[in-house]
Design a protein around this nucleic acid. Structure first.
Lengths: 204, 204
DNA sequence: TTCTTTTTATGAACACTGTTCATTATTTTT
DNA sequence: AAAAATAATGAACAGTGTTCATAAAAAGAA
């Protein structure tokens, strides 16, 4: 009776095929502009078929945005591997965060900027991936606090401040709000800004 | 021959009537969900008439978003009125910025988060209102630098850092990404974060 | 005033969107 | 081979931004 198992496997295969196509479409055209019909075309299915695998567009959004978190978590974990100094971990984690955002702006958009579907899902879901990512940052910040490496003593306060700074930096860049800075200096200004931030919060 | 002048006046009146309706619609439903037809209904015109006064939806967006900047500029100017200490000016300006964002989230969205129409307009326009607002912040930061009140010496670097921090703080809040913090503490955590930031950058 | 010209407003249509559902095709079970 | 269950789809609905030929209103000229 391995049939129902094979069926389930096939089902998951189609599901992830759709997911892959959706991710591609979101990255290329953004969430709003990427249409169900375009996603359906990519996997050579009818648009209606999509709805056999996902409740609606926002569910696709959520699934794709989870892939993004997995990738970000992986890249941030890799970035701090082998590093001992918690402050250096924090720096490298920050750079990994920035790198991810600038290299995958559409994905970052889905994860941290996009609005609409969030509300619909947040309330019922646990947003596990979001929390896992958050805790990854919290851990490092806590290490910095424990070793008295940074000037901010409250974990929540420190995390909120640092994350806000990083998010503001990359999201203003992604959303083209840095037009008033000389175009060719923006990248290095951003790096300098991260460096400056680390310097400011570290204990002397 | 005052007729063409009256015509022009009437034209501007209708235009700002549409603008007012659009602003209301954007605030209530957000930019994407607010439809041209809904805006037309509000002013009791045909949807097609809108296009006699605005090229397309993104032009309405731009006009409304300009109103937002005027308001923000006004509120930030008011907030620092009569204050001598540049650092205190910076603090109050920061709080005014935060207050504006939290009280007019939809407008802040249009001004600093929304994506699509920006690209289309940025290239040709000067984005005068954006620059005016930016310079308002620059002025204060420059004063702080001149009086050796803050640790960051570069104007561009300091402005980018401070603005990014403030934007990250309010935009993560607006886009509901602070779910992992205790709901009832978020507001005071945000204020504490601003305070902390000021403390960190000030010279001792 | 009456007639002509210019300005202003609109209804209908186009191509698109997310989504639903009755109908068809395929696969599994009897 | 027939019946039941699963999977896929075409067609449709109500919505979107936008265009354009047509209709209404206002202005200028006689």
């Amino acid at each position: 009776m391995g049939i129902i198992e094979r069926k389930e496997r096939e089902r998951q295969e189609v599901r992830s095929l759709i997911l892959e196509a959706a991710q591609q479409a979101f990255i290329e055209d953004g969430y709003e502009k990427a249409s169900i019909r375009a996603i359906a075309d990519r996997v050579e299915y009818s648009p209606a078929t999509i709805y056999l695998y996902f409740k609606d567009k926002s569910e696709i959004f959520f699934a794709v945005h989870e892939l993004g978190f997995e990738k970000l978590i992986l890249e941030m974990s890799d970035a701090i591997e082998g590093i001992k100094n918690p402050l250096e971990k924090l720096r490298q984690q920050g750079y990994a965060y920035m790198k991810f955002a600038l290299e995958n702006p559409a994905m970052y958009d889905l994860m941290f900027i996009q609005n609409a579907p969030m509300e619909a899902i947040f309330d019922n879901e646990e947003w596990a991936c979001g929390h896992r990512c958050f805790e990854l940052i919290c851990t490092i910040v806590q290490e910095c606090i424990d070793n008295k490496l940074i000037k901010i003593s409250g974990l929540e306060l420190a995390t909120m401040s640092i994350w806000s700074f990083m998010h503001g930096l990359v999201s203003l860049k992604i959303r083209n709000r840095f037009k008033m800075f000389p175009q060719e200096h923006i990248q290095q200004l951003m790096s300098a800004s991260v460096e400056q931030m680390i310097e400011l919060i570290q204990h002397d």
